[in-house]
């Protein structure tokens, strides 16, 4: 096997999926400003709609902060591991993020995301306000408002999926699609 060929295979796979940007590995708060600016710059070249750039950026922030706070993929330095992609979807863009979670956490997440996914724009707005006002018990460490924010900035219902890795862990992935207007 050749190094270049192996590497190109990864690159090609991402290109075939219309990925413009991919990061996989440990995530911390320090990563955010640089990575956020980079993605903003890249998306701004691809669209002249400033709201789209802002929505892609803000979904990226929420997704990365979710990994930093909740991922159970942790290395010795306690950094959460996640895989983030930003890519083209027709006239718009997608942001996906995946990370490992504990199985019981997966069940709670699935429940939460299923209910968010079923909400229309007005219901999301009401839920957002209720969480901000502290009228909704959020469970652990403020989970929830980030997902509601992602759903509100997405142009269509968020997609999510889980696969079981073993008795303890599942892999969780979330996709948001952002179109101009």
């Amino acid at each position: 096997m050749s190094l270049a060929r192996d590497h190109y295979r990864i690159r090609k796979l991402l290109e075939d999926e219309n990925v413009l940007f991919c990061y996989s590995g440990p995530m911390n708060e320090g990563l955010l400003p640089g990575l956020g600016q980079l993605v903003k710059q890249k998306i701004a070249v691809e669209t002249d709609h400033p709201g789209t750039v802002q929505n892609v950026f803000s979904i990226l922030v929420e997704q990365i902060q979710n990994v930093i706070r909740y991922a159970t993929d942790r290395d010795a330095s306690e950094l959460g591991h996640g895989t983030l992609t930003v890519g083209r979807d027709g006239t718009g863009f997608f942001v996906t993020c995946g990370n490992r979670v504990e199985n019981d956490q997966a069940n709670r997440l699935r429940e939460k995301l299923t209910s968010i996914r079923a909400m229309d724009r007005d219901e999301l707005k009401v839920m957002y306000r209720q969480i901000l006002k502290g009228e909704v018990p959020e469970g652990s460490k403020g989970a929830g408002v980030g997902f509601v924010d992602i759903a509100r900035r997405s142009s269509q219902p968020i997609e999510f999926d889980f696969i079981t890795i073993d008795d303890q862990y599942s892999y969780f992935a979330l996709k948001a699609i952002i179109r101009p207007n």
Binding site: Q54, F57, S58, Y128, L132, K133, V145, G146, V148
Partner: peptide, 16 residues
């Protein structure tokens, strides 16, 4: 220019 969802709680608190 932009605030994340955690900052939104602060904005709500200020409005209250």
């Amino acid at each position: 220019i932009y605030f994340n969802s955690t900052s939104a709680k602060v904005v709500m608190k200020l409005f209250d």
